[in-house]
């Protein structure tokens, strides 16, 4: 099998993995939250059932607007493609050709598209939700920038595949600066995924879902699926770099070839589920922030990657 063919296979495998894991991770999140709340909760595959039901429902659009019809598809397909670019060591999908900035800004582009759509709709709740989303994205930009620059400086590369492989090498991993950068990655995935208390944009009890309010049926299903894929991709960043990469570095000395990739993928999936469980417990413990209240922790959090960056520069 030539390299091109192999990469195509891995791309397909990664897309299928993303398409399956995104709703399953949400199912796990709902299950864990239910456990914290001392109730049984829905089955693990409930989100898949929800999506299949949404796709079977006829959408009702309040306005005849091409932008409204096309955007859900663009957003969904973008996310599906990006899910093949998740940086997993020794699993060469699109990560070999994508760099960290492209991935994060592709994710941001999708958020911006949703915000613009929400602002364009003649619905005050959508407008308010989108305005909040835009504010949060803007304030969080500093954090993202520090994290990317910090990691790139430390690993001397921006290529996603390269980052995934290099991050776990003992020379890079066992440093104080990496500790701060790793923490930044976990925080980035949590906040950018808009888990509570950072779910101000959609806040159902305040702005009724914000930008997604006017969508129903399969259009809403596409948005929901895209949102879940986005969360999966974001979660895969800290999981892959911080947790899987050092394990892969050890495994590399034991096995090689496709078996190594399959084993790494298994470890990746396992760590995804564990990290999601921890996120879900954190999410269950807090109420939602108000936008103005969220500014302070968002800005203060930027200190963490900054420290990582400075320490990396000092060679710690």
């Amino acid at each position: 099998m030539d390299e091109c063919m192999l990469r195509t296979v891995w791309v397909i495998v990664l897309i299928l993995l993303g398409a399956f894991m995104a709703p399953v991770l949400d199912g796990l999140r709902r299950k864990i939250r239910a456990k914290v709340q001392r109730r049984i909760g829905p089955p693990l595959l409930q989100t898949i059932y929800d999506l299949s039901k949404l796709f079977s429902l006829q959408p009702v659009l309040p306005f005849k607007n091409m932008f409204m019809i096309v955007t859900p598809y663009i957003v969904f397909v973008s996310m599906l493609v990006l899910s093949a670019a998740v940086p997993i060591p020794y699993v060469p999908g699109f990560s070999t050709v994508f760099d960290a900035i492209t991935l994060l800004y592709a994710l941001l582009f999708v958020s911006v598209l949703v915000v613009l759509l929400g602002l364009a709709l003649p619905n005050p709740y959508s407008n308010a939700g989108s305005a909040r989303e835009a504010l949060t994205v803007t304030v969080f930009e500093v954090f993202i920038a520090f994290t990317i620059v910090g990691i790139a400086y430390k690993m001397k590369t921006l290529n996603l595949y390269g980052l995934a492989v290099l991050y776990g090498f003992p020379g890079n991993y066992l440093r104080i600066s990496t500790l701060f950068l790793s923490a930044s990655l976990f925080i980035l995935a949590y906040i950018e995924s808009a888990y509570t208390p950072f779910d101000m944009g959609e806040a159902e009890t305040e702005v009724l879902g914000g930008p997604y309010l006017e969508f129903s049926g399969r259009y809403y299903g596409l948005f929901l699926y895209a949102l879940l894929l986005k969360r999966y991709i974001l979660l895969s960043l800290p999981v892959s770099l911080v947790l899987v990469s050092p394990v892969a570095a050890v495994l590399r000395s034991l096995v090689s070839g496709p078996l190594l990739s399959v084993l790494v993928l298994g470890v990746f999936t396992l760590f995804l589920l564990i990290t999601m469980s921890v996120y879900s417990v954190i999410e269950a413990l807090y109420p939602r922030y108000r936008v103005d209240l969220a500014f302070k922790p968002l800005i203060l959090a930027s200190v963490i990657p900054l420290i990582g960056l400075v320490m990396g520069w000092l060679g710690w």
Partner: peptide, 16 residues
């Protein structure tokens, strides 16, 4: 009140 503030754990435990 907890539900309105997005704190569903408080909501569930209170109703339990």
């Amino acid at each position: 009140a907890c539900h309105i503030l997005g704190f569903d754990t408080g909501f569930m435990l209170s109703w339990k």
